[in-house]
Design a protein around this nucleic acid. Sequence first.
RNA 1: GGGGGAAUACCCGAGUGGUCAAAGGGGCCAGACUGUAAAUCUGGUGGCAAUGCCUUCGCAGGUUCGAAUCCUGCUUCCCCCA
Length: 402
Amino acid sequence: MSFPPVEQQLEVIRRGVEKIVPEQELAGKLQKSRDTGVPLRIKYGIDPTGIDLHLGHTVPMRKMRQFQELGHQAVIIIGNYTALVGDPSGRDQTRARLTVEKVEANAEKYLEQLGKVIDLSKAEVHRNGDWFANMNFAEMLELCSKVTVAQLLTRDDFSKRMASETAISLHECLYPVMQAWDSVVIKSDIELGGTEQLYSFMLARDMQRDQKLAEQIGVMSPILVGLDGVRRMGKSLGNYIGIAESPYEMMKKFMQLPDACLRMYFELLTEVPLDEVNEILAGHPKTAKQKLASAIIGEYSSDDEATAAVEQWEREISQKEMPDDIEEISVKLSEPVSLVNLISKELKLTATNSDARRMITQGGVWINERGERHTDPHEMIAVTHGMIIGCGKKKIVKVVTE
RNA sequence: GGGGGAAUACCCGAGUGGUCAAAGGGGCCAGACUGUAAAUCUGGUGGCAAUGCCUUCGCAGGUUCGAAUCCUGCUUCCCCCA
């Protein structure tokens, strides 16, 4: 096995990375691996807590792929046991607990999606239940004895929760211990993750040293902010772009991204060379955003689909043309109905009548042509076949009579 | 085990007997402006057969003409002491 020169590897590794700890050990490890021809073992752990991976997850995943391309060994940990605990990192409250079955189902979905970024045929995949499930209580105690409560409380998220009088459950304290033990078991050289993982990464070093193993280096990416441009991208915050979403869905979301996030997204989510990024950012933000979107969408589907998505957005959203494929809803109506009932009861465009009423009186409803606004909720509408109804910014439907 | 505190709409949070479907902020929704960015402005934000009616302030009772507000019991959470 031959590896690129260390300097060259470092350049790839450093892109979009916020912190490497300890930084000074990295070159040495790379050099040693190059000299001996032994690839480094790169760890990335993910807890199967949901069914969709989003772009936030892909930041360390991409870093993993880069390591793979440099010739190193990817080691994926599916945290089926840690998922039962719930990672307290960066959280201000306890996560909801998951069932074993749920976790297993999620794990399958995750692996499928991981394969879109990482070359799974060359990766080791482990579930940490493989070693935690059979651990007995004595071993468990031994593990816990490695960490003091004071150490745990130095964690930012725990100390914040203490300060704000929010509960910290005992099982959450075990999370970093488990994560660190994973590193011992798989003998990781480098662990990938976000900056909020610092504590666990360092704990892993302590435990590896304790077991007379080489200590891992943490390579930490910045936290990717979500579509709101403020909070981290996350499922529960609803500010994410899922990697399994359709090209057009992704497109629409990308265009809603605040301009200020563009550089970060280019750096963390694409391979576009940094000087080229600077050039793009010097131009109009709208164009830059479209380039960003098509680069990323292209990776998860195809370049053609990405281009099509950009064009579709330009037509339907920017030019406000009628979309090509409008969702059709069939209704059976012989008599005219009031607009409120049409919107909420017949077409189910809103959850409640009150919602429909609001939407109508506020000018969010149009029929057949944008601009053909109908603001009287009581207006009686004689529904005709092919009638097009818009409700708010996002919903347009075509009525099909039976 | 003992003591103290808290629970209000999506979130935070005001409200201590009627004027409370409940201030204010955030978020979100709609509209204007725009590049479906940001900023800004306007309106909205429990439900319904809608100038009215019904349900909601942890849960269950009670006092009262009238309760988010007072009383009793319960549940949950937090803090302190052990």
